[in-house]
Design a protein around this nucleic acid. Structure first.
Length: 658
RNA sequence: GCCCAGGUAGCUCAGUCGGCAGAGCAACGCACUCGUAAUGCGUAGGUCAGGAGUUCGAUUCUCCUCCUGGGCUCCA
C-alpha cells in the first residue's frame, strides 16, 4: 500500500497510508489528541479533519483547547442552532452565524414577522441537544454559484451573500460565510439542512455540546439601520462542561460588579427618571470619591505644567461652525436654543473654547508648549438606545487638555503625554495597557492628506520610541486628526477604552491660531487634544467595576467606622472619631442601638476599609479592635499605632501613584 | 433611532385568568447594651411608571408616552 509522509509543526515527520486524513493523523499520535481535535491546518489553510492529506504536507491539528479550536466549535454550534430553528420554525430564513468572542450568534427572519422569546430559547436549546446526540456529520460540498442559488432558492439572505461573493463584491462578513473563488462551499448536516459556509467544521455534531443560548436581540441585516431587522440569538460554547461553567461564573461576577448596581447599593449616585435619560445626580458618597479623583487629577496636571481654565456650557452656533462640529456632529449635539440675535448650543467639546483662549491675545513661541486643562462639562445627544449607566451618558465631564506647540516640539510632547497618561492611570490601579493608532476616515475628515500623514506619523513614532506595541484602527480617527487610544484591562480582564491623545493640524487652521516665532514671523501651532479619564463619569464607572465597589483606602468614601460595643463606650468611640478626623480621615460612628454583629455586617456590606470596635478593654487602654476589609480581626491595637498605620497606608498608596 | 423584554414600597422580588395590594431587607418606634457578617416585637411606607381607551369595575386587557435592561446602529 502506498504511503505518504506528513510534516508536523515540531518538524518531525510521520508516515501514513495513502488516503489518510487529519483524523487518521491525530489518532496515530494519540487518542487524547484525536478526541480534542476539531479541525486541521494543512499547509497554512484551516480545513476539516476528514480532508485527505497529500504527501509532503505540513499538518497541524487544531484542538478544542485553542482559540482557533473554540472558534470552530462555536461556528459549528451556530450551524446546529440554525438547523434547530429551521426545524422548529418552518419558513424561517437564516442569514449569518459567525463565532464571536466566547460564543456565537445567528440571525434569522421568522415567517410573519414572528419574534423569539426566552421560552423559544429553551425549545431551541432542547432541539439542538437532540441534533448533537444524533451525531450528524458535517459534510462539505463545493458547488458552482448557480447550483448554490438553487440550493438556497428559498433563502433570500443566503442568495444575497452568494451573489455578492460570485460578483466579487464580498466583504469580510460574507467571506466568513463562504470561501472565495469559483465555487461556493456548503456544509450539509442532514438531507434537509444545508448551510453556506467556508468552514472548517467539526466532523460531527457529537463533538459539540457544552453550550448555552444566552439572549435574543434585534440586529440589522448587514448592520444597516435602514435595512430589515433580523432576530439574533446569542449563545456561548466551550470545549468542556467546566469551561462553560467558568464562563457563566465570570458573567455572574461581572454582574456583581455592575457599577449601576453598586452605585445604588453603596449610595454613590442615581439616575432619577425625573431628570431625563443619561443624566446622573451624585450623592455625597459618590461625590467624595469623584472629588478625590478630580483633586488628584488637578494636582498631577499642576505638577505637569498645565494651566487651569474654565469655559461656559453654552456657545454661539458660530463657534461650532468654525470648529466644524456642527458640520460633522450636529446629530450628536443637544438642540439649539435661540435667544437675542443668536443661536446657542450646549457644548459637546471644550476644544473650540480653548482655541479662543489661545487666540485671546498675541502668543509668543516662548509660551509654547501651552498646556490648557479643564474639567469641562459637555453635553451630547446620545441616542436613547445607547445610554448605559455612567459608561454612556448625555451630560459628562471631560478631563480635557489642549496643548499648543510647535512642530519641533510635537514629538517630545506626544512622548511625554504617553508617560503622563500611563502614570496617572497606574494611580487608579491599572497596569495592563493596550494602545491603538486610529487613522483617517476617508469619508469624514478635514484638511490635506499631507497634514494627516504628518500627524499620523508623529503619533506612530511616539509609540515606537516608547517601545509600545500598538494596534491600528483604520478609519477610526476624529474628523480633525488621528489619535492614539489607550485601553486598560480591569481586575477581571475586561478591556476599557479610556484615554486618548489626538494630533490636530486642522483646528488651529480653522481658528487661525498664530504665535510669533523667534524670527518674528507668524506661525501656526499644532494642537494636541488629550483626555485621560476621558469622561470623569465613565472613568468613575469603570473604577467602581474594577474595584468591585471596594475603593482603595485613599479614595474610599468612608475610610473607617467606629462601633462602640455598648452605649457605655459611646464617649470613647467619639474620642476615637475625633482623633481620626483630626488626622484628616473620613470616619463615622454607629451607636449601640443595634447589635454589634448587625452593625459589623452593615459596615462590611458598605465595603468600608476598617471597622473599629471599641469596648471595655479599649476604653481602659486607649486601644481599638481593628477589623480590616478582607483581613483578620486584631484586638487591643493602640489608637496611636493605628493612626500611624492609616497615615502610612494612605501615604504609600498616594506615593505609589506618582 | 431600530428590535425584543421589562417598569408593583427606598432595595430585591411575589401577586392579581378584571373585584379593597404582598413578603424579605432597609426606615421609624419600643425592648435588648451586646467583643467582630443579620436580636425580638411593633409602626409606617404604594394613584402598581405616566396618560388615554374598553369595562359596572383596570395594577391586570388595548393604545400612546416616558424610563430601564439586552442587542443593533452610532460614539468628536
Amino acid at each position: 500500500m502506498a504511503e505518504i509522509t506528513i510534516q508536523l509543526p515540531d518538524g518531525s515527520q510521520r508516515t501514513l497510508p495513502e488516503g489518510a486524513t487529519a483524523t487518521t493523523l491525530a489518532e496515530s499520535i494519540g487518542s487524547r489528541l484525536a478526541k480534542a481535535a476539531v479541525a486541521a491546518v494543512v499547509d497554512g489553510d484551516e480545513v476539516d479533519l476528514n480532508v485527505p492529506l497529500h504527501n509532503g504536507s505540513t499538518v497541524a491539528i487544531v484542538t478544542n483547547n485553542s482559540e482557533e479550536g473554540r472558534h470552530v466549535l462555536r461556528h459549528s454550534t451556530a450551524h446546529v442552532m440554525a438547523q434547530a430553528v429551521t426545524q422548529l420554525f418552518p419558513g424561517a430564513k437564516f442569514s449569518i452565524g459567525p463565532a464571536i468572542a466566547d460564543g456565537f450568534y445567528y440571525d434569522f427572519e421568522l415567517p410573519g414577522g414572528r419574534t423569539f422569546s426566552e421560552n423559544d430559547l429553551e425549545a431551541i436549546e432542547a432541539r439542538m441537544r437532540e441534533i448533537i446526540k444524533a451525531d450528524q456529520p458535517f459534510v462539505r460540498d463545493e458547488v458552482p454559484a448557480a447550483k448554490a442559488l438553487e440550493i438556497f432558492a428559498d433563502q433570500p439572505y443566503k442568495c444575497e451573500i452568494i451573489q455578492r461573493v460570485s460578483s466579487g463584491a464580498a466583504d469580510g462578513e460574507d467571506a466568513g460565510e463562504v470561501g472565495g473563488g469559483e465555487t461556493i462551499s456548503v456544509y450539509r448536516n442532514t438531507p434537509e439542512f444545508v448551510d453556506l459556509c467556508r468552514g472548517p467544521h467539526v466532523p460531527s455534531t457529537s463533538k459539540l455540546g457544552h453550550f448555552k443560548l444566552m439572549k435574543v436581540a434585534g440586529a440589522y441585516w448587514r448592520g444597516n439601520e435602514k435595512g430589515p431587522m433580523l432576530q439574533r440569538i446569542y449563545g456561548t460554547a466551550w470545549a468542556s462542561k467546566d469551561e462553560l461553567a467558568e464562563h457563566l461564573h465570570r458573567l455572574e461576577e461581572a454582574e456583581k460588579r455592575d457599577h449601576r448596581k453598586l452605585a445604588t447599593e453603596l449610595d454613590l449616585l442615581s439616575f432619577p427618571t425625573e431628570l431625563g435619560g443619561g443624566l446622573a445626580v451624585w450623592h455625597p458618597k459618590g461625590a467624595i470619591v469623584r472629588k478625590l479623583m478630580e483633586d488628584y487629577s488637578r494636582q498631577r496636571h499642576q505638577d505637569g505644567g498645565y494651566q487651569f481654565v474654565f469655559t461656559p456650557h453654552l456657545a454661539n452656533a458660530k463657534l461650532f461652525e468654525t470648529s466644524g462640529h456642527l458640520e460633522w456632529y450636529k446629530d450628536g449635539m443637544y438642540p439649539p436654543m435661540e435667544m437675542d440675535n443668536g443661536v446657542y448650543y450646549p457644548k459637546p467639546m471644550n476644544c473650540p473654547m480653548h482655541c479662543l483662549i489661545f487666540r485671546s491675545r498675541q502668543r509668543s513661541y516662548r509660551e509654547l508648549p501651552l498646556r490648557l486643562f479643564e474639567l469641562g462639562n459637555v453635553y451630547r445627544y446620545e441616542r436613547a438606545g445607547t445610554l448605559h449607566g455612567l459608561l454612556r451618558i448625555r451630560g459628562f465631564t471631560q478631563d480635557d487638555s489642549h496643548i499648543y506647540c510647535t512642530e519641533d516640539q510635537l514629538q517630545d510632547e506626544i512622548g511625554s503625554l504617553l508617560d503622563f497618561v500611563i502614570s496617572v492611570l497606574r494611580a487608579f490601579g491599572f497596569d495592563d495597557f493596550q494602545f491603538f493608532l486610529s487613522t483617517k476616515d476617508p469619508e469624514k475628515y478635514v484638511g490635506s492628506d499631507e497634514i494627516w500623514d504628518k500627524a499620523t506619523e508623529a503619533l506612530r513614532v511616539a509609540l515606537e520610541r516608547h517601545g509600545l506595541e500598538y494596534g491600528v484602527k483604520e478609519g477610526d480617527a476624529a474628523f480633525y486628526g488621528p489619535k492614539i487610544d489607550i485601553n486598560v484591562k480591569d481586575a477581571i480582564g475586561r478591556s476599557w477604552q479610556l484615554s486618548t491623545i489626538q494630533c490636530d493640524f486642522n483646528l488651529p487652521d480653522r481658528f487661525e491660531l498664530e504665535y510669533v516665532a523667534p524670527d518674528g514671523s507668524r506661525q501656526r501651532p499644532i494642537m494636541l487634544h488629550r483626555a485621560l479619564f476621558g469622561s470623569v463619569e465613565r472613568f468613575f464607572g469603570v473604577l467602581v467595576e474594577h474595584y468591585a465597589g471596594a475603593f482603595p483606602m485613599w479614595m474610599a468614601p468612608l475610610q473607617a467606622r467606629v462601633l462602640p460595643v455598648a452605649s457605655a463606650h459611646q464617649e470613647y468611640a467619639e474620642k476615637v472619631v475625633s482623633r481620626l478626623e483630626a488626622e484628616g480621615f473620613r470616619v463615622d460612628l454607629v451607636d449601640a442601638t443595634d447589635q454589634l454583629g448587625k452593625r459589623i455586617r452593615a459596615a462590611k456590606l458598605e465595603k468600608i476599609p476598617y471597622v473599629l470596635v471599641v469596648g471595655d478593654d479599649d476604653v481602659d487602654a486607649s486601644t481599638l479592635g481593628v477589623n480590616p476589609r478582607g483581613g483578620d480581626v486584631e484586638r487591643n491595637v493602640p489608637l496611636e499605632d493605628f493612626v500611624g498605620r492609616l497615615r502610612a497606608e494612605v501615604g504609600e498608596q498616594l506615593a505609589a501613584t506618582r
